[in-house]
Amino acid sequence: MTSSGTLTLVSTKDDDLSSLPVVPARHPWRWVGVAFVLVLAAQFVHGLVTNPAWDWPTFARYFTAQSILTAVGTTIVLTVLGTVLGFALGIVVAVLRMSKSPFLSAVGWTYIWAFRSIPLIVQLLFWFNISYLYQRLSLGIPFGPEFVSFETIALISPMGAAVLGLALHQAAYAAEIVRSGVISVDRGQLEAAAALGIPRFRQFRRIVLPQAMRSILPNAANEVISLFKGTSVVSVMAIGELFYQVQVIYGRNARVVALLMVATVWYIILTTLLSIGQHYVERYFARGDRR
């Protein structure tokens, strides 16, 4: 009652509010929240520095050790090959999935269904043990004569099996990401391209893909980063990537925490680089969005 009375008073007495200063609303609880988080963060950092169990001298000794650097290199190679082959195959699968032919579309769907259903680690172990299933691989006419034949175990090394498994797994997810990007492009864009008589492949490459990239990129970056850390799964195949290597070392010297931190910090550094790269690539594809 009092406040509405005051309001009436103001508006009748003095109609011109434009000269009054504006006082922004205060949010004291936000400051309480900030203080709370800062205290927690300070405690955590304090613990990192003062708790000897983190064992920073061991961390420093191994962080740039030759064996670790080699392992980081292997992890990067696995990530790059998995990404490049995975997305190349993924684009093919996405095109199949979007085909007007029901058969080809079903082939694409089945691929995605199968490889999303099988856990990566199970699939990797299958490839690793493929030579139990098929001792020889050969090229020739289906059901007819063979031209060349290989020992499976010689053709598919553990590293080869790992790349194959990661790429096939990645392709299923990449296909759905590419498809989501393509269907996010406005139908009118395809109609305009068709009305101008632009050839089909050029429509896809020049008109659809650059626009699809805008919604493909954040998801694709997620996938690359997730694959990058997912390469640690191939440690089950005794491949010397980062996670396998630190396991080997702490198996020997029992400095588990310090060596896990070595791996963690490397994963963080490389993920940070990927995130920075993502920022610039996204900015490039957003160029038509500038005002």
Binding site: A194, A195, G197, P199, G288
Partner: peptide, 23 residues
């Protein structure tokens, strides 16, 4: 489709929503 696309070069089409390529 390739033949139809070729024919369309003879037929200009202007859309209600312009449909310019935004990128």
């Amino acid at each position: 489709e390739r033949e139809i696309l070729k024919q369309r070069k003879d037929i200009g089409f202007v859309f209600q929503n312009f449909n310019l390529f935004p990128h």
